[in-house]
Design a protein around this nucleic acid. Structure first.
Lengths: 223, 223
DNA sequence: ACTTTGCGATACGGGTCCGTCTCGTATCGA
DNA sequence: TCGATACGAGACGGACCCGTATCGCAAAGT
């Protein structure tokens, strides 16, 4: 199917400190610059609004100023390349700051807001949704490496809120998570034109969700 | 660019009562069966999980048991066909029932929940999000014909709630809409595995959003 | 009867893409 | 120095696709 690259015994695509341990390579070493150029080209193409199906190896190679062989030497096919791009793309999760649960929620929502402003992440967010249906490998990588840790972070904060008595304990934790992050995801992923500039947006969202959008000033809370 | 079909003066794709008014066609009339077969084929392909870029005219024609020319006689290109498919796909909006604002919100959310269970709509929901980036015409048709009326329905209900004093008036109407429909959209569109079966889900979501997920029983509502 | 149009099928030119392969050259270890 | 491997460039075969055109036949009007 695919000509096994000589380096593959070390773990594909990894040339960290482990490389010299298992394969004291003989010939000319692979160009780090070429690799960076490939990643940069993919990200540039994403940023320019290309859809997943428009990201052909040929286009990527041309944009990177690189021969196709240089790509195929590193990844067996398009999927593998994009999976690695996905893995590299995401910025690190915001660390728990030790503040209030409300503050943590605001931080998380605001992190998502800012990320919605960054084109590259936005491309990936959107592409992750539909195109990946036809691409289980890519979809799974994205779910595993991006979605899952974020959902778990949200769950952890919500659980802490329940434990501390700040959040209602009669609701499903999942449901609370969805209510907290649903609105910001709606804006940052689903609706293109929605404004994300307001730096207070996260705070407004979290407070509205915490206090409820219903107008009853005090009574009748448990339906 | 494209050989104008003879029928086009009547409005493409429409062969209702208007047809005989403007063009007492001469030769063999177009086969209604072929048209239905084409629509059915596209929807079947969608349902089978094909992505937008996999929906080629050739594939559609083969699946419909129809010649390519029969498709190109009706639509000038792939986009036009898919735009019409999108237009046909959506089920009618739920009508206002005259109930409480809360009941209306529950009805709307529950409608979205049920729709999330229907595969065809789900395909379109998901594809609408990313793949259509590369396809402005299709995206616009979807936004105009599907998204917009739903957002307006939501806005109308929320405004009524504000007028009746059931919803907080100190919040942006858009924000309230997002908080109400964000969670259900999250489940029905973004997360594949999320359960949508619980018939009480809509009620739970709406009530949680109305009452707030914060635990404070009465005090400290305005942050 | 005769024309007009639609039908399914299929051939066609032109295009993009994939993944492999071969050039001539560059850079490493031995 | 020499073999091994990398590099950019691009040719190559095969696949798929688009949109048009052409078959022979079918169904309608005049």
């Amino acid at each position: 199917m695919h000509t096994e690259p000589t380096v593959s015994a070390c773990g594909a695509g990894e040339d960290g400190p482990a490389a010299e341990l298992c394969a004291p390579r003989r010939g000319r070493p692979r160009s780090e610059a070429a690799e960076q150029a490939i990643f940069a080209a993919v990200e540039d193409l994403m940023e320019s609004g290309k859809s997943l199906s428009e990201l052909s190896i040929e286009r990527i190679a041309a944009a990177a100023g690189v021969g196709k062989a240089t790509i195929y030497r590193r990844w067996p096919n398009k999927e593998a390349l994009l999976v690695e791009v996905v893995a590299r793309l995401e910025s690190p999760l915001p660390e728990p700051s030790g503040g209030t649960v409300r503050e943590e929620l605001v931080r998380m929502v605001d992190y998502m807001r800012k990320r919605g402003l960054a084109k590259r992440s936005r491309w990936m967010l959107k592409s992750a949704l539909s195109q990946m249906n036809a691409w289980p490998e890519l979809r799974e990588a994205y779910q595993e490496q991006v979605v899952k840790p974020r959902r778990e972070l949200a769950r952890a904060i919500v659980r802490r809120g329940v434990d501390e008595g700040v959040l209602r304990s009669d609701l499903d934790v999942e449901l609370v998570c969805e209510i907290v992050i649903g609105p910001i995801l709606l804006r940052s992923v689903l609706w293109d034109e929605a404004p994300l500039d307001d730096p207070d947006l996260a705070e407004q969202m979290v407070d509205a969700v915490l206090n409820g959008v219903g107008a009853q000033p005090s009574g009748g809370r448990s339906r």
